[in-house]
């Protein structure tokens, strides 16, 4: 068991190193941009998985925090000055905002049953979208506005590296988080809220903190996203963003951290290629439909997604070799 863990570690280090070297050996602009996009959405999807996979909460309002980060960064870079310091400050401000708001919303709504919570998050994030559309002096609504990124990011590769660094840091942080005693209580809440309560933990307390962590990290993803486009409009607050996070998490594998990253990669790449194909075959303009179907099948037949299913297979094969009985793992959904 221990040996395998280290193997995994090495593998990750190798992959990260390869990604660091990549832009220096390849000068494909498309790939640099595509990978940057994947890093950013990986961060978003991981933050979503803290809610869905680890705590068992379905939120339809995650775009709200992503958008908060995107707007905070965009507005600060535009209104004050487009410097690196301002960029870092804006990330901090965005996270703080997202943290505060997710704290209050969570406190009020996380007592509700899953349906009601999903519905309410849908409505609250709808409110933010309306707010952004109406507050035109700040956001310029659906038209949005462009802004200058800090000088340092003139070189796409620099931004690529920063996004990669953020991804690695968030991954390491979240891994610590979910493996901590706190993270284990979260999983216990997901498995059986009643029992967790009777063991003396207050599930609400844990859910609120999980939603704050998820919100704060989603905001970071939003900040990076805005800078990657040097543009922001209200689309960052729409359901589409939440749906992306949801698809990536479910298809990649809920309840793992690698899963959402794999999911983000698969979906971004597929989107890239399928919308390329759309020039010849218009049906591919509707590429999202394939993911909708895959997603539905995943929810029913592979509720653990790609990563979870692969892990399960490995686990089964191993236990077969030992001749011991496979221990059924707990359902994640």
């Amino acid at each position: 068991m221990k040996r395998k863990f280290q193997l995994n570690h090495y593998l990750l280090v190798v992959i990260v190193l390869a990604l660091v070297i990549f832009p220096f050996v390849s000068d494909s602009r498309t790939w640099t941009i595509l990978l940057t996009q994947i890093f950013i959405f990986s961060i978003l999807a991981m933050s979503y998985d803290i809610l869905l996979g680890y705590t068992g909460i379905v939120s339809f309002g995650h775009a709200m925090f992503f958008g908060m980060g995107a707007y905070t960064t965009a507005v600060m870079l535009k209104r004050i000055e487009p410097t690196m310091g301002m960029f870092i400050l804006s990330i901090g401000v965005g996270m703080l905002l997202a943290g505060l708001i997710s704290f209050f919303i969570g406190l009020l709504t996380l007592r509700l049953k899953s349906h009601f919570f999903a519905m309410l998050t849908l409505a609250v994030s709808g409110l933010f979208l309306v707010l952004a559309e109406k507050w035109r002096t700040l956001t310029q609504g659906n038209d949005g506005f462009t802004f200058k990124a800090p000088e340092f990011f003139k070189d796409r590769v620099m931004f690529y590296l920063v996004a990669l660094a953020c991804l690695v840091l968030v991954y390491l942080f979240l891994r610590r988080f979910v493996n901590s005693p706190f993270g284990r209580v979260l999983v216990a809440v997901r498995e059986n809220e009643q029992r967790t309560r009777s063991l003396g933990f207050n599930p609400l307390h844990y859910k609120v903190i999980a939603s704050v962590v998820a919100g704060v990290i989603a905001s970071l993803a939003g900040s990076l996203y805005a800078v990657s486009l040097r543009f922001v409009n209200t689309s960052v607050l729409t359901m589409d963003i939440t749906l992306d996070a949801l698809l990536m998490t479910i298809i990649g594998g809920v309840g793992t951290l690698i899963g959402p990253i794999v999911g983000a990669g698969v979906i971004e790449l597929a989107q890239h290629y399928l919308s390329g194909l759309a020039k010849e075959y218009p049906i591919f303009e509707r590429w999202i439909i394939f993911f909708g179907i895959v997603y539905i099948l995943a929810v029913v037949f592979f509720p653990r997604g790609i990563v979870g299913t692969v892990r399960e297979q490995i686990w089964k094969r191993k236990t077969k070799k030992d001749g011991s009985k496979p221990v059924p793992k707990k359902e994640v959904l």
Partner: peptide, 25 residues
Amino acid sequence: VYGNHVQQILITLGFMLVLTEMLKV
């Protein structure tokens, strides 16, 4: 997915996506 609330929420939302896209197809 009868009886599993989380799965129900997820799957019906996914179906919404498919229905909407199918309209466009």
